[in-house]
């Protein structure tokens, strides 16, 4: 499964990264190296184990559905690159 320049370009779109031609070239090379290193996992028989994301607990944690104060709107908006009328403002979506 050698990674190609086309694969890297596709992944950059998925990852929302406007990579330069140079970056695409460098990452194609470096990702190919890393991916060939991790190939060693394939040789292992892992049929005896099941997948789990967490190592200490696989239980879903529940809490009571109670009203609690959240951070004030002012604090949440204080870092916004652009804001208007108490909302985050983004560039136009509909042309």
């Amino acid at each position: 499964m050698a990674i190609t320049k086309k694969d890297v370009e596709h992944v950059a779109v998925l990852a929302r990264l406007a990579l330069s031609e140079q970056e695409i070239k460098l990452y194609t090379e470096q990702m190919a190296n890393i991916l060939s290193y991790v190939e060693k996992l394939r040789a292992l028989d892992t049929r005896v184990v099941e997948s789990t994301a967490y190592t200490t607990s696989t239980n879903t944690v529940f809490r009571k559905d109670e009203m609690k104060p959240s951070l004030p709107q002012e604090g949440i908006l204080s870092n916004a690159p652009e804001k208007a009328k108490g909302c985050f403002k983004v560039p136009r979506i509909i042309e």
Partner: peptide, 13 residues
């Protein structure tokens, strides 16, 4: 940026 997606991609890069 040209639009929202373009803003995401350039900001992150």
């Amino acid at each position: 940026s040209k639009n929202l997606i373009d803003m995401y991609c350039k900001t992150r890069d």
